[in-house]
Design a protein around this nucleic acid. Structure first.
Length: 320
DNA sequence: AACGGGTGCAACCGCGAATCC
DNA sequence: GGGATTCGCGGTTGCACCCGT
């Protein structure tokens, strides 16, 4: 027995909603609420299936929705929570008043994923690519590692060339095809440190913060904006800087991974606990969110590049 | 002006969970 | 308890718009 379709496919309109349809749906829901989506289109005089009506309402028509651009703060929260929760868009969206899971998902897929990749950070694991390379070397045979390392270095080569050109480093001194460089991913760290002008983006503690390359949290914002290299003249390419800041400075990759894993477990536990407790607050107050966010913003991507140091207070909405 | 590729967003699809009866 | 129905979620698709050529 196959799955029963949510509605008859015939006599059901699909595609873009017209303003008239929006009006009909919105006014019907204002009067009768959202109980029984299957009956809503029929009663509201719409040639749509219930599911389509539900999506239109939840993703677009709901009066509490925000429709503008994502702010830096919202972007920050998405990255933070995605690093812990993965693609659980509804949970992430619950932390952003007025945003839907669809909004968050679209924003991640069209913008944030690329941003992180551009920073040399794997958007799936939130680890630097160099970090992943190091992990790979511990699990693969040397010939496999060799091929992978070569491929990865190819990917980074453009970024490196750009960086080195800016700092007027003699490119001839770097042989990307040298076995000394491309067979050990840790050497990529070394290449950057040794050849790229020793650009330690120091925050005063000797360690650069991933998100602190400007005034406060700033990747993607007007103050730093990686992706616009013109605004980063005189410093390391943000991609490399972020990548180095995130993982390259730790003395041991394994140590970093262990610490991150521990933090990740901690936060995940907190989040899951809240999910179990259930929703009490619904969508939170925007001002409150902003205030709490500001309090923690400086810690969210911390000195030691701990992406996972979310505190329980960061959860402005209990997970439903 | 026409075309093509890239991008962003709305909408759809299918599955599993939750709820109803 | 179990089948039917509804709902929610994440992945994917389609399309309008923009921009460079």
């Amino acid at each position: 027995m196959g799955r029963i379709p949510c509605c008859e496919k015939e006599n059901v309109k699909r595609g873009q909603w017209t303003p008239e349809e929006d009006n009909k749906l919105a006014s019907y829901i204002a009067q009768h609420g959202t109980r029984n989506w299957r009956l809503i289109p029929k009663n509201a005089g719409l040639q749509r299936c219930g599911k389509s009506c539900r999506l239109r309402w939840t993703n677009y028509l709901r009066p509490d929705l925000k429709h503008g651009q994502f702010s830096d703060a919202e972007e920050h929260i998405i990255v933070k929570f995605h690093s812990v929760l993965g693609n659980r868009w509804s949970l992430i969206a619950a932390q952003l008043p007025g945003r839907t899971d669809n909004d968050v998902k679209n924003y991640w897929n069209t913008k944030l994923k690329k941003k992180l990749s551009g920073m040399g950070i794997d958007p799936v694991t939130h680890k630097p690519f160099s970090h992943l390379m190091a992990e790979i070397t511990t699990t693969l045979n040397p010939p496999q590692v060799s091929h992978l390392a070569e491929a990865a270095l190819g990917c980074f080569k453009d970024e490196m060339l750009h960086l080195l050109t800016k700092k007027r480093v003699d490119l001839n001194q770097i042989n990307f095809s040298s076995p000394n460089h491309n067979h050990n991913p840790n050497n990529f760290n070394q290449i950057v440190d040794n050849e790229a002008g020793k650009m330690k983006l120091d925050n005063g503690n000797g360690i650069m913060k991933l998100w602190d390359m400007g005034n406060g949290f700033s990747y993607g914002s007007s103050s730093s904006s990686f992706g616009n290299d013109e605004r980063n003249e005189g410093s390391a390419s943000p991609a490399v800087a972020a990548w180095r800041g995130h993982g390259g400075i730790r003395t041991s990759v394994a140590e970093t991974a262990a610490a991150e894993e521990e933090e990740r477990r901690k936060l995940k536990g907190e989040v899951m606990e809240q999910e179990e407790i259930g929703s009490e607050g619904g969508r939170g107050d925007g001002m409150m969110m902003r205030r709490q966010h500001d309090q923690h913003q400086q810690h969210a991507f911390n000195v030691d590049n701990d992406l996972w140091d979310l505190q329980a207070d960061d959860l402005i909405n209990h997970m439903v």
